[in-house]
Design a protein around this nucleic acid. Structure first.
Lengths: 332, 332
DNA sequence: ATGAAAGCGCTAACAC
DNA sequence: GTGTTAGCGCTTTCAT
């Protein structure tokens, strides 16, 4: 592996000069510059980012810590982050926690050890501090931030939950269940809160027996729905904690021989790509995923550059109800 | 940021000893060891992987270069890679080329600069060398390898194409089109080759007018199908280059008012998760994606450790035809 | 415009 | 068992 010293030897200048030339710093003769560049190319020189990182104390690297790359929501986020990061010359470490707090801790430690300049994280757990002795700028993909060295970014989940539930009520569904993902997750709780507010707004009493939890998977959606549909008076609609859950709900409902949307309404959350497939046509609450990724990186970059104060406000995004074919107006 | 020197000062031993203690190397008194560890913890010491990397010339880091994280095939691969990598203490850089060879080059250079120990890549382009002056062990996610410093891994695409087409023929479809992704891609060409062989095996002449290309997206699948369906004698089945394309095919076919599978058969390739959704039920050729990711990392690790010869053979995997509801036996 | 020297934080001989 | 020293490849003063 060729180093600047090798180039220096070949060209007869000091390696300081080589460094300057390679980095386009001022104070190098054009002719020297040309010679160095030419020789570097000829020798196949590739700068050593590790060595540079050691002295500059910056790595142009960030970590992206997410629970489940297999849920289409996260690849969209990841792409948003990555596209933006690459614009600024940053590379991103992909870390998949599988919703496991211990694995998350291990990753966080590894990222610190690798001296990433910052971290974007969707915590595996919202009810505890992500990182006690955190030395690195972070942006959290949710609404709770305990620490001024962190920013956060999220959609207005409560409003989204409200919109979804209101839509089901106004469509004429009479017994609307909520099937969430993991409890104690901020986004989940906020969506549930929106659900409750919508019920209240229409003077519908909250029925705790049709508020169910599981995790953020299709299978969990199926199982929870199965439980609810075996009630003597089962619900006739579900607001699901996310689209992946909603898929499980739909499958179960169909397995029970019910028609969507005539017998049963379903609303999801996220608006992952497959929600708009003609075979699915899931009514859902959209999050601007690409934009969230992009914004997350922008906020992180601000933090990294040390500019700007607490930019939390910028990260509070609008959800949008997208009405498709898993809900229908029953009064028509 | 606390360093081993800081710990050395506090504990009164040399920083070499601190280093030894921290790394659990032999030749340190138990009492010294305890003292150092305790102090390190107290001071919140976090080892500097950059500095270590500089001297050890290894970073425990790999690059994963893929075209499109938004195609569910790749997150599955990514997870396989990542799970395995994390077992061995490796972190992975996620690089999304968006099928753009120039972006790929930039990423490859960045990865080399960051001194990754190895790279797993699905090339944006199969018809040229991935990396001319490549210094890093690589495993390619496809069947062509020009270089002995590379391994590769792929499913037997030709066989998969053969299986898919044979199934359509045997189901009684009479005019079977092929809608591929990008031309000049090894996997694509091999699947097409399998298609051709199946036709030949049944003495069906190849009709070039129903062999179409585009790229690996749903939209492209839709457009190509649209073109074919406007023929005077349109095809009655499509073997699609991958599942994402097949989705577009299905949408278009339905927009033309045709029934799947009665009027029109569709077979995809990959078996992404959504293929098995009850609303989709896509007949397809499965690739063992998780396993491919895992295997890719294992092969890479062998290369990194410098063990073993050319392990190409290990990477040639069996495809499996999965028959669902987008094809039906018309003779019944 | 160029070079000498120090130092980033760590590991690895080599001494004692 | 512990310390001294050198050095990984680079950037950055500080001289000249």
């Amino acid at each position: 592996m060729v180093t600047i010293k090798d180039i220096a030897k070949r060209t007869g200048v000091s390696y300081t000069t080589v460094s300057r030339a390679l980095n386009g710093k001022p104070g190098v003769n054009q002719s020297t510059m040309d010679m160095v560049l030419k020789e570097a190319k000829k020798m196949g020189y590739q700068p050593n980012g590790i060595a540079r990182g050691l002295v500059k104390k910056t790595t142009n690297t960030i970590g992206l810590v997410i629970p489940d790359i297999t849920n289409p929501f996260f690849p969209s986020i990841a792409r948003g982050v990555e596209v933006e990061a690459s614009k600024y010359g940053y590379n991103v470490f992909l870390c998949n926690t599988n919703w496991d707090r211990e694995k998350e801790k291990i990753y966080l430690a590894a990222l610190q050890e690798k001296r990433v300049d910052g971290i974007i994280i969707k915590p595996a757990n919202d009810n505890e501090e992500v990182c006690e002795n955190n030395q690195v700028p972070m942006v959290l993909l949710n609404r709770t931030v305990k620490n001024d060295s962190e920013s956060c970014i999220d959609v207005d989940n409560e409003k989204g939950g409200f919109l979804a539930t209101k839509h089901l009520i106004e469509s004429g569904y009479s017994k609307i269940a909520f099937i969430g993902g993991k409890p104690l997750h901020y986004s989940n709780e906020a969506r549930l809160e929106g659900y409750k507010k919508a019920l209240k707004a229409f003077n519908i009493p909250l029925n705790e027996s049709i508020v169910a939890y599981g995790d953020f998977t299709t299978q969990s959606g199926y199982e929870q729905t199965h439980k609810l549909l075996k009630y003597e008076y089962p619900p006739d609609a579900v607001f699901a904690g996310n689209d992946v859950i909603a898929l499980g709900v739909m499958k179960c409902v169909q397995d029970f021989g019910l028609n969507i949307p005539l017998d049963f309404g379903v609303v999801g959350f996220d608006n992952i790509q497959l929600a708009e497939l003609p075979q699915i046509q899931l009514t859902t609450v959209a999050q601007p995923m690409d934009y969230m990724g992009k914004l997350a990186f922008e906020l992180l970059l601000e933090r990294i550059k040390g500019k700007g104060p607490y930019t939390q406000g910028k990260g509070f995004l609008e959800p949008e109800l997208i009405i498709r074919k898993t809900t229908a107006n029953k009064s028509l």
